[in-house]
Write a protein that binds this DNA or RNA. Structure first.
Length: 524
RNA sequence: GCCGAAGUAGCUCAGUUGGUUAGAGCAGGCGUUUCAUACGCGCCGGGUCGGGGGUUCGACUCCCUCCUUCGGCACCA
């Protein structure tokens, strides 16, 4: 049985969910939905990373316990995803008991393998901030702390280390045997050159704070954040029912900023814990940053945009699907990309309203006049249409398999365009007068095309898919393990159609609404 | 500084290993249809493929150089 395991990073809870994390989560959700439609037994994991000094300090500032702080912000994340149409199978919190258990078990495995040892970490420490800084983070020359305007001190602290240096060769070999381990390729090269530059052992514990997973056997230490966090991908499955069934991850989505941790440290940890090469994650896929309306989003500039608010403003019914579509369609995956309200408006009108919505809408008048449908065998026009649809399905599948949302949606929309073209060529309005017997054939063909398109569109726009299918007289798509529903062959003709003409799925925006949306969502 | 990526039509981007007139979508123009959400369909893109030089019979596609932008160069979530 084919399984599919996809993960997002667990998000650090020092901030509310933003467009960037929404993008990652949506991509993961779309991949999960796609695989489910293909019949794979799929597991989609996300969660929150809740440990570390920053969280401890933020909690202290508010006069609450770190756990209470974490509970609050984590909940914010957990509640956000359904509002964006995302349905993770599990939501892992690093402060949960099961995760601590799992992380400690992972620690022990590595320790028993002899790859964790006690040593001393030296770093530049700012007493005022109570934390370490890198040269880059400090003001040069002099290594001045930007907050306290005092030079950071060189401090030595007891710390456990992971023998990362021992894994350079094996990692290199692993990359050579798995050329697509990291995608896109340019990122793979970055990772390779990083490893080729030599690896030092990694400090994996701290004693300067205690909000973390205690090191087993030495509770003066807590695991340093990356050891703790990365293990979540394994600990989430570390239950008898799941463990082994979904492991290893098929796709791990990460932002480019955290690629190294996932492409170097993480496989090394797993190697040390005794995983064979074919038990390591299959693909780590790095995406770029998002700007909004050409501007980098930042809290200080106060130009962050809430994807949830945007979706609600666009439309209560299809806003979420619209935002999902636009994010995936407009951002060239892997590159930095810009997302803007003008882009949303343009795509809502053109791609969604005109091409997709209108196609569905224009078939209805003919369908209602043809209740007892008896389509003739397909002619050349119909055959050409179905070939085009199947090609679109195949190309979209190929693109989804390679985590290329933009390409997948392009292929999908080629299918929709072909259906519109077919409708014009077949011209049922003319056939009605000249050759009435052909009308049922034409209606049937377009309905079958639309049925196929409702599948192709489903991973990205599940509610639109359901709305389309409702108008076509079909039940929403469900996931059936082992049953590939992707339309890689001609959709079956149905003798009886039960079309239900509904309101347009993507109603045209009034000029006033366009103005309102622009005003509300154009960053300044 | 070192390494790497990108710079292609107004906008967003595709362009396999170099080869006939450089592509798509959107926007815009023209035409057409009226089934449909003034929607669809058809036609229209003389862009020095960042600048310069070179290799080649021939380069957007290889090499050099310059300019611009963006990444990576280890403990930053």
């Amino acid at each position: 049985m084919a399984t599919f395991y996809v993960t997002t990073p667990i998000y650090y809870i020092n901030d509310a969910p933003h467009l960037g994390s929404a993008y990652t989560t949506i991509v993961a959700d779309v991949l999960a939905r796609y695989r489910r439609l293909r019949g794979a037994d799929t597991f989609f994991l996300t969660g929150t990373d809740e440990h570390g000094l920053k969280i401890q300090r933020a909690a202290t500032e508010r006069g609450i316990e770190p756990q209470a702080f974490a509970d609050e912000v984590s909940e914010l994340f957990r509640q956000t995803w359904p509002k964006l149409g995302c349905a993770p199978d599990d939501f892992l919190r690093t402060s949960s008991a099961r995760h601590k258990r799992g992380a400690q078990a992972m620690w022990r495995r590595i320790e028993q393998a002899g790859d964790i040892y006690l040593g001393h970490y030296t770093g530049l420490y700012c007493v005022g901030c109570e934390s370490y800084y890198t040269d880059k983070e400090l003001e040069q020359p002099g290594g001045i702390c930007p907050t306290h305007k005092k030079p950071a001190e060189l401090v030595k602290e007891e710390s456990y280390f992971f023998r990362l240096s021992q894994y350079q060769e094996r990692l290199t070999r692993f990359y050579e045997n798995n050329l697509r381990f990291v995608e896109p390729e340019s990122r793979m090269n970055e990772v390779k050159s990083f490893v080729a530059g030599g690896l030092e052992d990694l400090s994996v514990s701290r004693t300067t704070f205690n909000w973390g997973v205690p090191v087993p056997g030495d509770e003066r230490h807590v695991m340093y954040v990356w050891f703790d966090a990365l293990s979540n991908y394994f600990t989430a499955l570390d239950e008898p029912a799941d463990n082994g069934k979904y492991w290893p991850p098929d796709v791990q989505l990460v932002g480019k900023d955290i690629l190294r941790f996932h492409a170097v440290y993480w496989p090394a940890f797993l190697m040390a814990a005794g995983f064979a090469d074919d038990e390591l994650p299959r693909h780590v896929v790095a995406h770029g940053w998002l700007t909004y309306g050409g501007q980098k989003m930042s809290k200080t500039l106060r130009n962050t945009v809430s994807p949830v608010a945007l979706a609600e403003a666009v439309s209560p019914a299809v806003g979420v699907d619209t935002v999902r579509y636009c994010l995936l369609r407009s951002i060239s995956f892997g590159h930095d990309g810009d997302f803007s309200i003008d882009d949303v408006l343009a795509r809502y009108g053109a791609d969604l309203g005109n091409t997709l919505g209108n196609l569905l809408n224009r078939v209805h008048p003919f369908a209602v006049s043809e209740p007892g449908l008896t389509p003739a065998p397909d002619g050349p026009l119909e055959t050409a249409l179905f070939e085009a649809i199947v090609t679109a399905a195949r190309e979209a599948a190929e693109a989804w398999d390679h985590v290329s949302p933009t390409r997948a949606l392009e292929a999908t929309w080629v299918g929709l365009a072909q259906a519109n073209q077919y409708f014009d060529k077949a011209a049922p309005w003319a056939a009605k007068k000249s050759e009435p017997a052909r009308v049922p054939t034409i209606v049937s063909a377009v309905v079958r095309a639309l049925e196929a398109m409702s599948v192709l569109v489903c991973p990205v726009m599940p509610s639109v898919s359901a709305a389309m299918r409702a108008q076509l007289g079909l039940a929403p798509l469900g996931s059936a393990i082992g049953h590939d529903q992707w339309p890689l062959s001609l959709p079956a003709a149905r003798a009886e159609l039960a079309l239900v003409r509904g309101e347009p799925i993507f109603p045209r925006f009034s000029p006033e609404k366009v103005a309102e949306l622009r005003a509300a969502f154009t960053p300044h």
